[in-house]
Write a protein that binds this DNA or RNA. Structure first.
Lengths: 335, 335
DNA sequence: CTGTTAGCGCATTCAT
DNA sequence: ATGAATGCGCTAACAG
């Protein structure tokens, strides 16, 4: 920038003002022109770290997900990045690959980067110790002036984009019920994930309200992956062969469940057993058969998260509630 | 850090050495202990921008993709992030959403961030003007000491992780041929994308070598998306109803093609028409029917890319060649 | 092995 | 409206 200033025959301060001046454009037309010309000619590229140092804040926002290759997070990330672009923010993505400790580590890293904000997109967990450590790090981050936004519940005093996981669980179960299903099983994910708990809880409550409480043996737990869904679904239908419908707590698992039902057990979907997934990721409609599922506005969640972290800190924690919707396709049938 | 140094009763330099000292750990045991204790107690968090400024290099690498929600890029990103993690690098992802100009803009942004390196994961394009501008920006980036690695061809003097797009196109066509297909059509993506050109070219050559050159009317072009694949496949099979097999130039398009064939035209796959995709994205095996496709080692490409940017600049451009493999599943049948 | 010192590139007072 | 000066937090000689 020195060079640019010199080349334009102005002071360093003036060059700084026209090159990065935020709002109050208090530079004369003539000088402004000269500086811009000089910058152009010298191919000046501003130095973001230096700016961050001087301003004590940067234009990068962090996004911590479990797995970028998972379409659930892919959709959220796409939404967040689209919104970030409009604000000229850069997005730094960290993937924990579902190792709990990494979330904390990456939050620290983002704090070191002096990220302006971070979005915690992965599900919270029921591990009290980990949650406490994370809360402390979050507090530190906010004390440094950073913003933190969670997608999904993490704590009452955090800005959060709330997904209708409970309501969605209820929706799915009631949809199945209306189709005439009475023997409903649940292929669940890891029970320490809050997202899983909420979805399962929503299903449970709805079933109880319908007068048919969900028996414990009708729930089986697997990894939140395709393979996990396949294994869990096969196990559940083997142990409880009278089940006529399955709620699978995310679409990726549901894809596995569909494969397991068909290839491992030879059970026809939807004639022998109906299947409902959760999330409505992009490929859900292309599965075989097209997956009925609970749609969550994933991209919108990403956008909303960026929206929240743009708003001034605020006195009370902010919340955005996103609704779920049941989408019935070909993996469910009436009985 | 001042505080930490003072608290530990050492100089700033010593604190810096134990806190961020790279390798040559030339600090006494006792002092080291004291500094670490002080840092712990004061909850010291290092300031990455300041480090970047002082060192004139950072620990962030940029990854520019077309779309994070696309499973192709999701897989590449996952591989890159896994590798980056081992090197304690942070990954800044930028998505162009297929707007050509954005690639250049993001490269500039990453340059401003003083990213240590950037990975260009999206396909190059045949637009000469855009390519030239990009080349200039790349040169500038490298002149600043940054590394650039491309996934897919971008130019002969760039470090690149080369995907076997041509070979893959040939593989697909020969696979179909061996199944007895003689009337093969291609659902192509935007022809300005180099990736598309190479895949199509590979298919063309193979067909010519087989003595059955691909007629122009047997190729139809669509967006590199599900909707694009659907529309293009429907159009192709409507105009050329005698085609017995389709090569679709990526799996996302193939998902759309499958839907179009089934829902719009009522053509059975694979009995009436066989379909081969390209990429082998995670959901390919779950489509209806399970998609035969050309597998590309996507995650490995991401890993290889960060591997390349870790190696010292090198005299000659480096290349990593990744092979393709034909995976036959249920969307193809013999005639 | 440890401390002193001089920048890194930029934003901002504070003068003018 | 513009310029001069100071410091952001840290690293890297350099000197002991």
């Amino acid at each position: 920038m020195q060079q640019v200033a010199h080349h334009a025959g102005v002071s360093l301060a003036t060059a700084s003002r026209v090159l990065h001046g935020s709002g109050s454009r208090t530079v004369g037309e003539e000088l402004r022109r000269r500086v811009e010309a000089a910058a152009q000619e010298l191919r000046y590229v501003s130095n973001a770290p230096a700016q961050a140092l001087a301003r004590a804040t940067s234009s990068v926002v962090g996004l911590i997900v479990h797995d970028v290759a998972d379409p659930y997070f892919g959709a959220i990330a796409a939404g967040a990045m689209r919104a970030a672009r409009e604000q000229r923010l850069m997005v730094m993505i960290a993937a924990t690959f579902r190792e709990p400790g990494l979330e904390l580590e990456y939050l620290r890293g983002l704090r070191a980067q002096r990220a302006r904000a971070v979005i915690l997109a992965g599900s919270g967990t029921a591990d009290a110790a980990a949650t406490a450590e994370l809360a402390e790090e979050i507090a530190g981050f906010e004390a440094d002036g950073g913003r933190v936004v969670c997608i999904g519940e993490r704590g009452p005093d955090l800005d959060t984009v709330a997904m209708a996981n409970r309501a969605g669980g209820g929706l799915a179960v009631r949809g199945l019920w209306e189709l005439g299903h009475r023997r409903i099983g649940v292929v669940s994910g890891p029970s320490e994930l809050l997202t899983v708990r909420h979805r399962l809880d929503g299903a449970r409550r709805a079933l109880r309200a319908l007068g048919a409480p969900l028996p414990l043996r009708a729930v089986v737990e697997g990894d939140f992956t395709r393979a996990g869904g396949r294994a869990a679904a096969v196990r559940l239908m083997t142990e409880q062969p009278d089940l006529g419908a399955l709620l699978v707590l995310n679409d990726v698992m549901a894809a596995g469940a569909l494969a397991g039902l068909r290839d491992d057990l030879g059970l026809a979907v939807p004639t022998r057993v109906s299947v409902v997934g959760f999330d409505d990721v992009p490929f859900a409609a292309d599965l075989s058969p097209a997956l009925s599922t609970v749609r969550l506005p994933l991209e919108q969640a990403g956008e909303a998260a960026v929206g929240l972290l743009l708003e001034p800190p605020g006195d009370a924690p902010r919340r955005v509630e996103l609704a779920a919707e049941l989408v019935l396709r070909d993996s469910t049938a009436a009985v």
